[in-house]
Structure formats: structure tokens, C-alpha cells
Design a protein around this nucleic acid. Structure first.
Lengths: 364, 364
DNA sequence: TCGCGGGTTGGGAGCGGTCCCAACGGGAGA
DNA sequence: TCTCCCGTTGGGACCGCTCCCAACCCGCGA
């Protein structure tokens, strides 16, 4: 039909060749207009007000009337116009999922996709949309803060905050309903949040390594300015007790590359270990690459355990022992809490801790 | 402050313990009301109409007036109320990103996250939101089709369609502005789409394998009811020419697991090969696991190449030779086209083919 | 039988924009 | 100098819904 256009040079726009020049409507072509609440009212033989009441829980509407309204709705295929409803209710109808793009590992990690999926699924029945927002750098975060508090969204879902004080402070000051995924270090009392018991989960993995006969367990931690990084290290430390040895500790930033570097550091400094607990599956994969390059076998020479039970754990060779991080449940819970917050139901902050689960595979 | 509640049993809701029972507002607490266009008009000493014009391109507004309006906007921190604008313009303000969840590999694959990220970034300046929609199964797809065409969205971005005729037919019939990511097999003329030249890209990878001295190159294809699966196989075939041998061809469904199975099949049927082209990085990782378990070394015994250049390619050991799939550019282009479609600019379908790039790493 | 109160119902008044039409004003051409 | 025309401008009429108040109805107790 039309000749496909081939773009030369990545992303550089060239002229569109297949754009015919037929009669071009100067304004957007309106889709055939849908039925309004007025149409429903007329068909059901009642007033707008009654239909509106029927639409919103049906309180104070006689059952017979409610039924005839529902019939009319079905007959017309009526669906409420969210824009009109939002305007009348004085809300925006959308919720922001904020991801700081400085956390690039997040985009590298497929886990955050689960959040998007679940958020959108849970938000839809609430008549709300998900607005995914990212900030590339500090200055964009400024803009983002302004954007969020300027009345563009009704609520905020915040992923894994670093030390994002400016944004956090702004959200608190604006009284924006917000739920944090993970523990907001230093802001625990100011926000609602949903998290796992990082320390306990890490404790269990490391205890598993010890139980399986490993003598010396090293670790590559996540960044220590995050609650996850701290908590997982604390669990590691508690599990080793007196055997804790700083020489067995290296640090990463969640990225695969940093996991590799962490393991290399441990090897270079001559640390001896027969087990390695890595703060995330992603980093664990990098670490395993380093171990293998050093001629060590997993799990024969070194047992390796990760954290999160992301798809990466199965991509590893051998498959990774890890801790299941309940991302889906976290997301569901976060939306539920946020909805309450936005509706003004309940008061005060809400804090939820979800359970984790040890997943043992071939790497240990 | 409040006692964290611990959920026992994955996802099972228990009573919230930290919900205080302070004076509870029966209705949602309205945020302090923001300035309206009327406020701006008053401050600038003009009428609503003029401010509206200034807001929308400033055509037919004297420069001096435009400036004073902008000053007023800045002074008040005014931002337009999208709900009101959408209502007045008769649009919904949102765009759906449709992902068929039958394509589970999509969620396994972090690539689709790039789409979400870029879509939301590109849509924001257009005053539109991204609505991520998924359908778990056939019946949900029915509902989804109804939802999309019931006036809830202004446009649709469709990821990698299978043989989703019902949905495709419905979108066409409803004249919903739609852009397909990838080639909609059998519906090429009915939709606008953005794709890569799968065949040419696959041809180049396989040619690279041949050039590097490999004698017999096998392949694990993607599903052949997708254009990507077909195209990549066609490129493989063209590159081998007379050397093409059906015994060297196995099939997968994009999942890592299916890549593993594909490679196992090839080995079991006694196919001899010293190179393997796999239809996606994900499958390639599975295939490499199978090869390794069979005692084969990569790349010494078998060179392996993937497709997409996803993060998985770097997680592989050794890192995977692959083809860069320009996901980001694809997403940008798709939004641009969709915006034109929704605005009624241009006419007819738009078809864009983006360039790819061979990425050589240690696996070949 | 009358008054009263609570469940129902109708419809007016917005919500905050866009769009369109009429009115205005000033420069160019006659 | 008088039209004519076009770039500006103001403001009315919606867009489709929610909210709220007044009106209505009916059963019940006095």
C-alpha cells in the first residue's frame, strides 16, 4: 500500500514518505460521541441526579429504579466520562509512579516492570490512571517535585528512595498522599510504606549457607545509603555473629557490573571464602562472572546466593539461591493504602511489612 | 511512631494495626485549590479567552499581551487543569499501552520496560497519560477490546501482536488511532507501525558468523506466527543460501526455557554445528545453558549469537554477540506517529523501519 | 385526621477549560 | 476621508459529571 520509510541514522527523523495528502481535517476527528448520563436518564425515565446516585453506589435509590437505570446503562453501552467526573470531583484521576532515574539499575532490572503492571491493574477499577514519571538528574527532580505538587496527580507511589530529601520534604509539605515502596530511611514516620524485613530475609539466606557447611561467607552489599543495602548487611552480620570479618565485605550499587567489581575486590585482597552472599540477583550474576574468571567453580568452590528472586536468578548458571521479594504483593498493598489515603479514609501513616521466602537452587 | 504491621501469609490481608481513629474526614480532603485560568486572566487584565489562546500557542495574541499573560501564569504558578481541558476538548487525555499477557516472556524481558519509560516521557509534554493495560487471557482480551473502544482512551500503542485478530479487527472497526510496535502480520495495510528490518538484521548476524569461519550454523527461532520470528528465520536462511539445512533449525517461543529446549533438541537429533544463531538474547541464554551442560564450550566449540541487545546479553557468560534493537527510538517514533494520528494530522497509515546494528562480543 | 421525619427524587449551580461569534480598532487602498 | 479587512479581544455557550438543596411522598405516632 504505502512505501515503508526507512530511517537512516539512529533516531534521526527524516521526512515521512507515506503520508498521503488527502483531505486533512483541521481538528481532531471526534469519535462518534458516546452516550452521556443524560441519555441514560432519559431512557430510564429518571433524572441525572438519580443516575449519578445509581452510578456511585446506589444509595438512596429504590431497587426498582436502580434496576431500570442499570438496564438503560447496559442498553446504551454507557461508560462514565472520567474527565467530566474528575473535573466535577476536583481530582485529577491519576497517580504517579516515581522512579528516580539515577537508579539506573532499576531499569536494568526487570522487577520494576512488575510494579508498573500491578499498579495499572489495581488502579483501573479505582478509575485512576498510572503516570510513570522519571527524573534523569537532580534538576529534573526539582521539576518533578514541582510537577507532582502542582495538582497534576492525586497521589504518589515512590520507588526505593535514595537520599532524596528534597523530593521527600516537598511531598510531606504538600500533604500529597504518598506510599513508599521500601523503607524511607530517616523518614519512616513521615510516610506510609510497604516493605519486607530485609534483615531477617538476609539472615535466613546466610544461615542457610552456614547450615550447608560453608565456613567463611563473604558478601557484596548494596549501597549503604539505602535501607535495603543496610538491612541486608545487618542480616548477614547477625547470621555470622562472632565470625563476622570486615575483610569479607565488599560494596556494590545494585548493578551487575558492581557485583563483578565487588567479587574481584574480595579476591584481590586475598579474602578466603567458600560462600558469597550478594545483595541482589543482578549483582550476584556479575559476581559469578568474576569468580568463574578467577577459576573458581560455583557451587563447588564457592556457594553463591542472591536476593530478590528476579528472572535474573534463573538466567544464572547455575540457577541462583535467593530470597523471594514479594514485588507483586508489595504493589497491591501500596495501591490499597494509597487509595485509602486519597479518599481520606483512615488517618495517620500506614506501615506494612510483608513476608519473604528462601528459595534454594543449585548455586548453593 | 506507629507499630508496623506484619502480614502473615503471602498477600493475605490482616487487619491494619496502625490506623489511628482520629477525626476522619468523610470526604476526600481537597488539596488547597489551585489558580484557575480566571485568576490568570484577572491578574493579567485580559479575558479568559485570551489566556486560553496564550496557553495554546499564542496565535492571534499581541506579543505584549502574551508576555503579561505569561507573567501572570508564572506569578500564580498556574498549570492547566487537564480534566477540564479534556472535557472541553472532548478527549480522554490518555493513551493505552496494550500488552497481551499471554506473551509472558514480555514481562520476563526487561525490554518492555523501556517502552513504558519512553512512552511516559514522550507523552507527558503532550498532556497525555500512559495507561498500561494487560490481558491475562482470551476473555480478558475481549473486555480489553471493549474497554479500549468505549472511549476511555484517545489512542493505542500495541506491543508485538500475535495473531490477535479480534482485538486488531475491533481497533480497525472503531477507527481508534493505533500504532503497532513491530509488524502486524497480515494487517500491515490496516495499521501504522514502527519496526526494524528483522530479516536484514538476522542476515547480518549470521553473515558475521560465517565470515568468522564457522562452517555450520544452527538456529533456534522465535515463534513463527510472529513477524519477528519469521523475519529472523528468513534472514538466517538467506545468509546460509545453499547451505541451509532444516536439521539445523529448532523453534522456541522467546522464553529462556524454550531456548534451552531448542538447543537440546538440536543436540539430541545429532545436528552438528559450530555456531548457533538464537532468535532472542533471552532464548540464547537458555541455549547456552544447554550447550554448557552438554559439555560444549562457547565460543570455542560453538559460537552463539542472540538478538535484541537487551541487558540479558551482558548477563550472559560470555557476553553475547547480538543485534541492537532500537527500542527507545521505536517508542519515540510510535508516540510521534500516534500523536499525529490522534490530532488528525496527516492521513493514511504511517510505516517506519528503523536501522539496527550488529554488536560483536565474546560469544562469537 | 394531622403533623412529622426520613427516604427519594429533580434539577440548578458549578468544576475549569475550549470554541466560536460578535465587536472592536487601525492600517491599507480607493 | 471613507470603506474594507483582518488581527485582536471579550464573553456566552457548552463539555458531562457531582453535589446539594428543595420538593415530594409515605408511613407512623399522637
Amino acid at each position: 500500500m504505502s512505501v515503508p520509510e526507512v530511517r537512516s541514522g539512529g533516531g534521526v527523523a527524516s521526512e515521512l514518505s507515506s503520508v498521503a495528502s488527502a483531505a486533512e481535517p483541521s481538528r481532531a476527528a471526534r469519535r462518534p460521541s458516546r452516550p452521556t448520563i443524560e441519555d441514560v436518564a432519559r431512557l430510564a425515565g429518571v433524572s441525572r441526579g438519580t443516575v449519578s446516585r445509581a452510578l456511585n453506589g446506589g444509595r438512596n435509590v429504590r431497587p426498582a429504579v436502580l434496576e431500570s437505570v442499570n438496564d438503560a446503562i447496559a442498553a446504551l453501552g454507557y461508560t462514565v466520562n472520567q474527565a467530566a467526573r474528575n473535573l466535577a470531583r476536583g481530582r485529577t484521576g491519576s497517580v504517579a509512579f516515581v522512579i528516580s532515574e539515577r537508579q539506573e539499575h532499576l531499569f536494568e532490572d526487570p522487577n520494576w516492570g512488575v510494579f508498573v503492571k500491578v499498579f495499572s491493574r489495581e488502579l483501573r477499577p479505582l478509575g485512576r490512571h498510572l503516570l510513570v514519571t522519571t527524573a534523569q538528574d537532580r534538576s529534573e527532580e526539582q521539576l518533578l517535585g514541582a510537577y507532582l505538587t502542582a495538582g497534576h496527580v492525586d497521589g504518589v507511589l515512590l520507588a526505593l528512595p535514595y537520599d532524596d530529601e528534597p523530593l521527600l520534604a516537598r511531598l510531606v509539605a504538600s500533604q500529597m498522599p504518598t506510599v513508599v515502596l521500601g523503607r524511607p530511611l530517616g523518614w519512616e514516620a513521615a510516610f506510609s510504606w510497604v516493605m519486607i524485613d530485609e534483615e531477617e530475609a538476609a539472615f535466613e539466606v546466610v544461615a542457610h549457607l552456614v547450615r550447608s557447611g560453608r565456613r567463611r561467607t563473604a558478601t557484596v552489599t548494596g549501597p549503604l545509603d539505602t535501607s535495603s543495602g543496610q538491612g541486608r548487611l545487618a542480616g548477614y552480620r547477625r547470621a555470622l555473629g562472632m565470625d563476622f570479618d570486615p575483610v569479607l565485605v565488599a560494596h556494590g550499587d545494585w548493578s551487575m557490573q558492581s557485583g563483578r567489581l565487588g567479587a574481584e575486590q574480595l579476591l584481590e585482597r586475598g579474602a578466603e571464602f567458600d560462600a558469597l552472599f550478594v545483595g541482589s540477583d543482578h549483582m550476584a550474576i556479575g559476581a559469578m562472572q568474576a569468580l568463574r574468571e578467577a577459576g573458581l567453580r560455583v557451587p563447588a568452590d564457592v556457594a553463591v546466593a542472591g536476593f530478590d528472586d528476579s528472572v535474573a536468578a534463573l538466567m544464572a548458571d547455575p540457577p541462583l539461591t535467593t530470597v523471594r521479594n514479594p514485588f507483586e504483593e508489595t504493589a497491591v498493598e501500596a495501591v490499597r493504602i494509597l487509595d485509602d489515603l486519597m479518599a481520606g479514609r483512615g488517618s495517620g501513616r500506614r506501615h506494612v511489612v510483608l513476608p519473604t521466602e528462601l528459595v534454594v537452587r543449585a548455586s548453593t
